[in-house]
């Protein structure tokens, strides 16, 4: 456990000290700001509150995860391979599981920090809600929404981490992560919303993370979806452990 903690601490440190972290934070916060402004415009235009509620986690931000997450995860293992520090790490008594878990946890914390402005926006909206009995946005839905973005983000991070474990080149890690994420994202999105065959649409809605994000931000927490994300995340982390254990050169 103490090994995990020191790895985790080191991971957070590297994460927040790297210049790329500040670029990512800057762009994401600009994006959440734009999203908030757009939300206000829609509310002023008399958009229905359910639609507006979806806007908080959906929209542009949902799409931006495809770029943001690979930027967070690209260095995780690729950098260690490049520097040769993977060798010095794996010749200490730590296990590959601890290493992967610490890197995953570190990235997840950084990812959570990215979403902090949304908490502030929620508080602001509630403060200016028209009546004390009817608050917008709905707190329960907000909790579900945060659960949703953490689940989706967790899966995306595990995919990015896996891609990073395969290479010693950060650019390759970022681009392959981006490719895998966007292919699954857009294929499932089109299946879910534009496929002519209703069965294909149903399957698409089961798997599309965009559809899930909208569900979560409306306050719908489906146990099946939660299990889906947790098990996929675990699978990719497991695959990354196996890669780290076996790909040593």
């Amino acid at each position: 456990m103490s090994v995990f903690l020191s790895l985790f601490k080191k991971e957070l440190q590297t994460c927040f000290l790297s210049p790329i972290a500040f670029v990512v934070i800057f762009f994401f916060w600009v994006l959440t700001g734009l999203n908030f402004w757009w939300l206000l415009v829609q509310l002023a235009d008399g958009e229905s509150l359910t639609m507006a509620q979806q806007q908080i986690f959906g929209g542009l931000i949902g799409f931006s995860l495809l770029v943001i997450v690979p930027l967070i995860t690209m260095r995780l293992f690729a950098e260690e391979r490049k520097l040769g520090t993977l060798e010095s790490l794996l010749t200490t008594p730590l296990t590959a599981i601890e290493l992967v878990a610490a890197k995953f946890a570190g990235s997840l914390v950084f990812y959570a920090v990215l979403w902090l402005p949304v908490v502030a926006y929620t508080a602001m909206l509630q403060r200016f809600s028209p009546s004390a009995t009817f608050l917008f946005p709905d707190l329960g839905a907000m909790r579900a929404g945060f659960l949703g973005i953490m689940l989706v983000g967790g899966l995306y991070i595990s995919i990015g981490l896996f891609m990073s474990s395969l290479t010693s080149n950060q650019i390759v890690a970022a681009i392959s992560g981006f490719a895998v994420l966007s292919i699954q994202f857009f294929v499932l999105l089109f299946m879910a919303y534009t496929a002519p065959n209703p069965d294909v649409r149903t399957v698409g809605q089961y798997f599309s993370s965009y559809a899930h994000l909208l569900d979560f931000s409306r306050g719908i927490v489906d146990g099946r979806t939660v299990v889906l994300y947790l098990s996929y995340t675990a699978w990719f982390l497991f695959a990354a452990v196996k890669v780290v254990e076996s790909k040593r050169t």
Binding site: T14, L17, S18, L83, G84, T85, E87, S88, T91
Partner: peptide, 13 residues
Amino acid sequence: IGYLPESCPLYPE
């Protein structure tokens, strides 16, 4: 074991 790998990998930051 105390192992010093050939390239002496360290974290520069």
